[in-house]
Design a protein around this nucleic acid. Structure first.
Lengths: 216, 216
DNA sequence: CTGGGACATGACCAGTTGGTCATATCATTA
DNA sequence: TAATGATATGACCAACTGGTCATGTCCCAG
């Protein structure tokens, strides 16, 4: 499969130095995207020599892979935690809590989210297929299991199209997080850097609309 | 305001040559994004000398502005046409037609849509604020007027939050188009390069869900 | 035929990129 | 102390970037 991108030299380094390098790398890739990212800037930020970087990683893509894996693991852990924490609640409450958790994640790890958005729409970025496949799988499992449980508990309108419901939830959630993270994206909610209370109000409005529908 | 980015020299050119240059530029920017785009590749594609390019436009950003304006005007005209064509129909029929028109646009002008996505998530691209502001204004006007009319005709559930409805429509539409345009993005609908008939079925499922809601 | 303005051209420039490598430093052995 | 292997370093490389400009071609007016 894919060989380990980090060299032994890197894992033997004192943890704080590893931290500095990874931090600089995440910042650079998140700010600039893969191709725009400059290794010269990266090493300057990390306070190491250019040559050292190539003792730690085989090349630019190797650094990227490493960051990518760390980020993906963090997301995975977070998703599992939220799902378990609301296991026995009803669908709409779970959705509300999920969206809140999403916003929290994005505020705590803005660079990871920014990196994700960059990869999503830059066809040239390495690992793009892998990333999108992984995200798709997670989203599908997550919402799929919420919907299945809701159906079993009779919380869903009968005859509903499950793929459509999944698509709808995925779309609305993703857009909500984007609007909270990216300035100028949002049409009416003004979510970017809004106070928590305002965000939560919007979440409730939105869930309510999903629940009851638009039609009279 | 903003000065014209194209020089007179360019407008005096034989139309087919203008066409070739603009086409090459759109392709390059759409494929690579602003910063990754290479003027060397661009001139090779257009079959002109590097020096000539600088007789037509002041610099890279000037070329980008020009392409950008052309694209924006095209979108504007399309939006107006759809809105007028369904003026007296009910909300959900109009939404269906709008989404169909969106998919059609994206199939006819994939490079323009790709460019739009690139700009949206690359914070470093020039004109990003302008682009996002323009898109936001258009979307808000478009959906806003649909919703206002639907409300007047009593097609909406009373007490509905208008900002939430607007956000919801904007989110779902945008995501639907993204899923149709970008491979691997879509969780369950398999919209990318799907046949028209399949797309239209999905559109109907989705609109129906928006109409009736999720809850039992 | 001459002159002049519009347009075309590609060699050239300084700056930056990802990546290399000979050399230096350092801690740990013997 | 000497030797050894791991790690650190930054000058250096070819390739490419956006942008310039001296020179050339072409057409048309006088």
């Amino acid at each position: 499969m894919s060989q380990e991108p980090a060299r032994n030299t890197f894992t033997h380094l004192p943890p704080d130095k590893q931290e500095r390098v990874l931090d600089a790398a995440l910042t650079e890739f998140a700010d600039q995207g893969y191709h725009q990212a400059s290794l010269n800037r990266l090493v300057a930020k990390a306070g190491i020599a250019k040559g050292s970087l190539y003792q730690y990683f085989p090349n630019k893509e190797g650094i990227f892979r490493h960051i990518f894996q760390l980020a993906l693991n963090l997301v995975r852990r977070t998703l599992v935690a939220v799902k378990e924490a609301t296991e026995n609640e009803n669908l709409f409450f779970r959705l509300e809590k999920s969206l809140q958790a999403g916003v929290r994640f994005l505020q705590e790890h803005p660079r990871i989210y920014s990196l994700y958005l960059k990869i999503q729409f830059d066809r040239q970025t390495p690992l793009r297929r892998e990333l999108l496949a992984a995200v798709r799988r997670h989203a599908s499992e997550y919402f799929g299991s919420l919907i299945a449980r809701a159906k079993a508990r009779g919380e869903l309108r009968p005859g509903i199209s499950e793929p459509a419901a999944l698509f709808l939830l995925d779309a609305v959630f993703d857009r909500f997080l984007q609007a909270a993270a990216v300035p100028y994206l949002d049409v009416t909610f003004n979510l970017h850097q809004a106070p928590e209370e305002a965000v939560n109000r919007r979440i409730r409005e939105l869930i309510d609309l999903l629940k009851e529908g638009l039609a009279a």
